[in-house]
Nucleic acid binder design. Structure first.
Length: 486
RNA sequence: GGCGGUAUCGUCUAGGGGACUAGGACACGGCCCUCUCAAGGCUGGAACACGGGUUCGAAUCCCGUUACCGCUACCA
């Protein structure tokens, strides 16, 4: 038979922000679709009106868009499908795979409580399935409210899960579950199956918290005479304490990481490695590379713990690899937001700006780090780090004198370029009796130039600052050194 | 409780009967590089949950135990 085009969907419920676990599920679905030339669809499961919000729906769109996980076709809103879902449920009533249940919620709750009190587990006893035809007709005619229950057949239900292999459930452990509420709206499993059939989904890839829903859904597919999709159940993501990831663990929404200065590519890379291994000790990958390497064989069965430290490292790797021009599109808005520069200003001296990013990205782990580190090169005034000042400017009169010498040496330079600076400063160190310990000069100078104890190489700093500003910073430092120690 | 799932360094993982004195990465320590910090290189400590089998041989296969997770709603 002809190879069918895979169709997958990511089906989040809009009850919060896009969670990292959801993002990873979306990623694997997306990767599979791309890898095998299929489609990646998005379905918003908004049938729980009480908990669903438009804001959450927007957050899901924004999260996926930020990550670059674009979906095919129009977004499907589950809530818009209740009529078709109901029709499907009634088809099951018609073909006798489902039946009307007149038990009320209160009665059910009571029986459940009674069973629990006896230490037994409650299972619906099918009493309404034993009602005779006339009684059913009478109640329906009287307008007695009813739900539709699926009649679970004998036997056992199993499937070959793409990540777990064979999984089987004895049907006797599945009760006759409700598929349609009294008000005619579908219950989750009904809606999912009805929609997945309608959307022609061929591979259902979702969190493994759905494993026990799967046999019920398979039974529904059969009752509806539909072809079964393949199932793949992905492990969960836990927090550092091994518990299910929640608000207590800090940032859990992908949007949080965006605001923390994490790159979407790094986020995706990190998430991919949480539950999937490309093998061959490969760690850092672009999205395109992930598509090439993706394979369900590498999918993990075990829940993974979200380690923010590794995410940061991963982000640093992606930062180093990213071309400055590309990085600029992310950093520029952040610089503007921080009030350090305007896009127009940066565009006017683009080469200089890109060179600066090139220098900063290596020692940054987040784009926020870059913004912080860029301040001395963009702002007119600098703030002095107390620790750096205390350490490098211990002998204030001596440092003032030293910086004066440095200024003279630098000011006399014919060309403002690194080789000349290095030669001048190293020979100055020699003359001042520091021998080859030119760091004795570089360190105090670094503080004078940037206000910080750490920065890119001192000659790079000098070049980025430019002659006038660099000399001006030294002058300011000398003035500051004349004052009292802080 | 019932049912289902899972189990390799602290964490993410490689491993799919002999190549394992168990490999890589994050984190941690040391060294190198060096004007600081990163990056990079080298290096150290650190794991097959436990018990039975199967086999000439088990991290790898089977069973049990334990632990953890999920489901067990007219939630999704």
């Amino acid at each position: 038979m002809a190879a069918t085009v895979p169709r997958l969907r990511f089906a989040p419920s809009p009850t919060g922000y896009l969670h990292v676990g959801g993002a990873r599920t979306a990623l694997f679905n997306w990767l599979y679709a791309k890898k095998f030339g299929g489609q990646f669809l998005l379905r918003i499961e908004d049938t729980d009106k009480a908990r669903s919000t438009d804001e959450s729906t927007r957050a899901i769109f924004e999260g996926l868009t930020w990550l670059g996980l674009h979906w095919d076709e129009d977004v499907v809103y589950q809530g818009a499908n209740v009529e078709r879902n109901r029709d499907d449920a009634y088809r099951m009533l018609a073909n006798d795979t489902a039946y009307r249940c007149f038990c009320t919620q209160a009665e059910l709750a009571e029986r459940r409580a009674a069973a629990e009190a006896r230490g037994e587990s409650f299972r619906y006893d099918r009493r309404c399935d034993r009602l005779d035809r006339a009684e059913i007709d009478r109640r329906v005619a009287d307008g007695v409210p009813f739900t539709l229950r699926f009649r679970v057949p004998e036997g056992s239900t199993s499937w070959d899960d793409l990540v777990h292999g064979e999984i089987a459930f004895p049907n006797k452990d599945i009760e006759d579950f409700i598929i349609l509420r009294t008000d005619g709206t579908p219950i989750y499993n009904m809606a999912v199956v009805s929609d997945d059939i309608f959307m022609r989904i061929t591979l259902v890839m979702r969190g493994d918290d759905h494993i026990s829903n799967t046999p019920k859904q398979i039974l529904l597919y059969r009752a509806l005479g539909a072809e079964l999709p393949t199932f793949a159940h992905l492990p969960m993501i836990h927090g550092l304490d091994g518990k299910k990831l929640s608000k207590r663990h800090g940032a859990t929404a992908v949007g949080d990481y965006q605001h923390l200065g994490i790159l979407p590519g790094a986020m995706l890379n990190f998430l991919a490695l949480l539950g999937w291994s490309p093998g061959h000790d490969i760690e850092v990958m672009t999205l395109a590379r992930m598509v090439e390497l993706f394979d369900t064989e590498g999918l993990q069965k075990k829940a993974a713990i979200f380690d923010p430290k590794k995410l940061e490292w991963m982000n640093g790797q992606h930062l180093s690899l990213m071309p400055a021009a590309e990085l600029a599109t992310i950093v520029t808005p952040a610089l503007e937001a921080a009030g350090l520069a305007t896009a127009a200003d940066l565009a006017a001296r683009r080469d200089w700006y890109l060179a600066l990013l090139e220098l900063l990205k290596v020692r940054a782990r987040t784009t926020d780090d870059i913004v912080r580190q860029a301040a001395p090169y963009l702002a007119d005034a600098i703030t002095y780090d107390a620790e750096a000042e205390a350490k490098q400017w211990k002998d204030r009169p001596g440092t003032a004198k030293l910086l004066g010498e440095v200024r003279r040496a630098l000011a006399s330079l014919g060309a403002w370029e690194p080789a000349a600076m290095e030669e001048a400063l190293r020979s100055l160190a020699e003359r001042m009796g520091f021998g080859d310990k030119a760091g004795k000069i570089f360190q105090p100078l670094r503080v004078a130039l940037t206000g910080l104890g750490v920065s890119p190489g001192i000659f790079d700093v000098l070049v980025m600052l430019g002659r006038d500003r660099a000399l001006g910073r030294i002058d300011s430092a000398v003035r500051r050194l004349a004052g009292p120690a802080v």
